[in-house]
Design a binder for these strands. Structure first.
Lengths: 218, 218
DNA sequence: GAGCGCGCTGTGAGCAGCCTGAGAAGTGCT
DNA sequence: AGCACTTCTCAGGCTGCTCACAGCGCGCTC
């Protein structure tokens, strides 16, 4: 689990990094709001622990900006302000939890676990064409409901074909998108792999258009 | 927004009902754990405010039972116990938030809003995949009911795999989420640890997808 | 219907990717 | 200091994937 800790107080930041790392988290730290925001944007974190009083950009602003950009990474605010209105403000600007300093380490951990439980669940995106289905996430491929196992190259090729189902795709096009070094790969290799796919998927779906390329019925 | 308030102290229950109704919530109340659980099961609520010390069935048990039944309605625990371990226990048995009495009404509202923002996308407090279970809070791992002891790194790796069960995860992805300095860690290290896990968990669950990564059967 | 060119496929060599055992380095406990 | 344990590196071995090659079939053209 990747965590981002944004905290300017060096000693606390170091303590958090050490403690959380000992729990098995992968921890990155940022010492001010701006770099914290930048990291949160592109760092693919599972949660963010965020101080409020930060140089350059306050914690409030960091959350608000993230939310405005449709980034819903779970955020736990750490704050020295223990007023009820401070807490309410922090939560209302988009944070998911709020702890006041000094905080209990045990509680911080439990609250992080509770946050991580509710991950950002993005799903499906399973491609279909005719009686074929292909799931890029699980790499499951089925023909008429029956599962089929493909080698990596076969899989990539089928994925490309299915994404262009209905269209005729040329061999050069296929080489460009499926092979690493299209220039020194024999176009015959494509024919070979089309053969493999036909054997595994049945001959009906994948038609050859002589002189042009191949076409997967959509 | 429909709220369920489970609270046996009559005056507090009435105050909550009035206050929350004034905020525009539709509020039902229950005065003991059993009827609370029954209502939560079938009442289609958007969130539950739950006391711990309840007649007939404790708040802990209510949450645990709901979660066991795959009911992920957001739960906010209200408790008179303010020990850090009470709070951690409450969260770890599946609640999403924990407030100690006496609490600030403003904060309760803000925390409810934060919960409702998230909606029902929770996952269990103890993770499962196939015949594997893993509890992030207690760090217990079992295979087919039998307990297994893992080293910290093994545990973190399994946790990541189980959180992504069914999906194929690449070695780089694993390095990013499980190792501290992914850049100067040999991908072979991942292979080694996958080997360790297979020896401890049995070879069936953890499949390698050649050229891509690994996949834990879900 | 003959000739030609495109596409198909069986074979096998080469090698990338993965697994594993052995062991070194580091850490904490007794 | 000695021991147990964990982490990680390294080298060797194996599996099975990838791809080139060459011969054959088939459809198109004239």
């Amino acid at each position: 689990m990747r965590l981002l800790v944004v905290e300017d107080e060096v000693r606390l930041a170091a303590a958090l990094r050490r403690g959380l790392a000992a729990e098995g988290f992968v921890v990155e730290t940022a010492a001010d709001g701006l770099t914290g925001l930048e990291l949160a944007r592109h760092g693919d974190f599972d949660a963010v622990v965020l101080d409020i009083m930060l140089p350059r950009l306050s914690g409030y602003d960091v959350v608000r900006t993230l939310r405005k950009e449709d980034n819903w990474v779970p955020v736990l605010i750490l704050s020295a302000k223990d007023g009820e209105y401070d807490e309410a403000d922090g939560l209302d600007c988009g944070a998911d939890d709020y702890l006041t300093k000094p905080f209990s380490y045990v509680v911080l951990l439990a609250r992080l676990r509770a946050l991580l439980r509710r991950g950002v669940s993005a799903r499906p995106a399973v491609l279909e064409a005719g009686d074929l289905t292909l799931d890029p996430a699980t790499r499951d491929v089925t023909v008429a409901g029956r599962p089929v196992t493909l080698t990596p190259r076969e899989f990539t090729l089928l994925e490309y074909l299915i994404r262009n189902a209905g269209r005729v795709v040329s061999k050069t096009e296929i080489l460009d998108h499926v092979w690493d070094s299209p220039l020194d790969t024999d176009p015959n290799t494509v024919e070979v792999y089309v053969g493999y796919l036909r054997r595994k998927l049945g001959h009906t779906a994948l038609q050859t258009v002589r002189g042009v390329g191949y076409r997967l019925a959509s």
